[in-house]
């Protein structure tokens, strides 16, 4: 699992190869088994595969780069404010990203899009709001190398400033 977590990257250059429906279902299965506060499962998912529809969403999503084969839009279903909905949806997104990586897909999470415009384009009812978009496709080139801050800088044992003896 740690290998998959570490090999995931934000991919923005995709091949035109379509994604088999069975693989898309595996991503959705991963999404719906994410943890959620009170098991509320406050989410809905929209898959977009038609090139023309992807283009329309792209027009209102400055953060969406490249030409993905599919988009997965993660939506809150009901009021998100004052609930754990956004955190739940974020965890569902991570499940999708890791499953995509495992299945050889590239992916990228996008928050830079106009929620109201995408809501309108997808004909979503007023209580369903798009919160995140994941672009999906087979990578056209290897992912760039990424880095993370060292663990010693991030972790405190027992209390702030505490170090591990081991």
């Amino acid at each position: 699992m740690l290998d998959i977590i570490k090999s995931r990257r934000s991919i923005r250059h995709f091949l035109e190869t379509p994604i088999p429906t069975e693989i898309l279902y595996s991503l959705l299965e991963a999404a719906r088994w994410a943890p959620s506060g009170g098991n509320n499962q406050p989410w809905l998912f929209v898959i977009i595969r038609e090139r023309a529809n992807i283009h329309k969403i792209k027009m209102f999503s400055p953060g969406l780069q490249g030409d993905p084969s599919a988009l997965l839009v993660l939506c809150s279903d009901g009021p998100a404010e004052g609930t754990t909905a956004i955190m739940d949806i974020s965890m569902a997104a991570q499940n999708v990203l890791l499953t995509a990586t495992e299945r050889g897909l590239g992916s990228c999470v996008i928050r830079s899009f106009n929620q109201s415009a995408v809501q309108s384009l997808l004909h979503l009812p007023s209580h369903v709001m798009p919160e995140l978009i994941i672009s999906l496709g087979y990578p056209a080139k290897p992912a760039r190398i990424s880095s993370r801050r060292p663990i010693e800088e991030l972790v405190h044992w027992e209390t702030y400033g505490g170090r591990s003896d081991e």
Binding site: M59, S112, F113
Partner: peptide, 22 residues
Amino acid sequence: MISLVCFLAVSARGLVDEPKVY
């Protein structure tokens, strides 16, 4: 042109809440 106008207008609105470097 329509795509570009959308990109610019949506970016303008989005940048209100996004990191400066965007």
